[in-house]
Amino acid sequence: MILKIENLNKSFGGLKAVRNFNLLINEGELCGLIGPNGAGKTTVFNLITGFYKPDSGKIIFKNRDITNLLPHQIVHLGISRTFQNLRLFNNLTVLENLLFAFNYQINYSITESLFHTRNFQKVEKEIKEKCYQFLKLFDLEKKANILAKNLPYGEMRKLEIARALALNPKLLLLDEPSCGMTVGETSLLMDLIKFIKEKFNLTIFIIEHQMRVIMNLCKRIVVMDFGEIIAEGTPEEIQNNPKVIAAYLGREYAFH
């Protein structure tokens, strides 16, 4: 078990965005989180990664209580994420976007950077090489010096995943990675996610809107509605769960 969430609650003003949320994620798992719009999925991500402080409840990562840690501390412990509406450094190049992910892993001192000592230069060179390895893996090496904002949308998504991976996480949180991608791109993305999960020995927790993606990727799916978990199980179980069908039919597909 890598992540354990106990009785998590969070409200904004009068709105209970997440209530009594309990979840276990096992090491090496690829777990999906679905639910209608506004169900509180992204809020759960923001709580895990420390961007929001929960009103009550506990989040335990690798037997360590991370409930009240700050976002950067949580990254240092090995949880990294992507954002639903992309948070790349738009005015910087693709390479720079990746470089920034290594910042916290660099341990030369300020004095060494003041004088650009030999050790400094060695470390910088290694990092750049690592960056290119990641770019190659994600087929972005030709675009290393393009500004992130000038990438096509699908490649922006890929770059954000690459950047999250470069942080060297144990647990990767993906917030709607296929959002805005074409059918072809989505298929490639699914292969990519499976590939990196094996290669980097990751546990992945993924929010997804496209049923095709989530059913294909995940062995276990958690369904949220109105801030609560309403169902949990294998894709087949979820597809046939009356509560889930009601949640979706009752809201999103009612007037189509």
Binding site: T49, G50, F51, L70, P71, H72, V75, H76, S80, R81, F83, R87, L88, F89, N90, N91, L92, E96, L99, F100, A101, N103, Y104, I106, Y108, I110, S113, H116, F120, E124, R163, A164, L167
Partner: peptide, 24 residues
Amino acid sequence: YSKLGRNLIAIREDENAAYAMGIN
């Protein structure tokens, strides 16, 4: 052109993304 400079630029460009990069 060192870790510090890149941290600062990351913060300027997007505070939340900088947090997500593990930057204090």
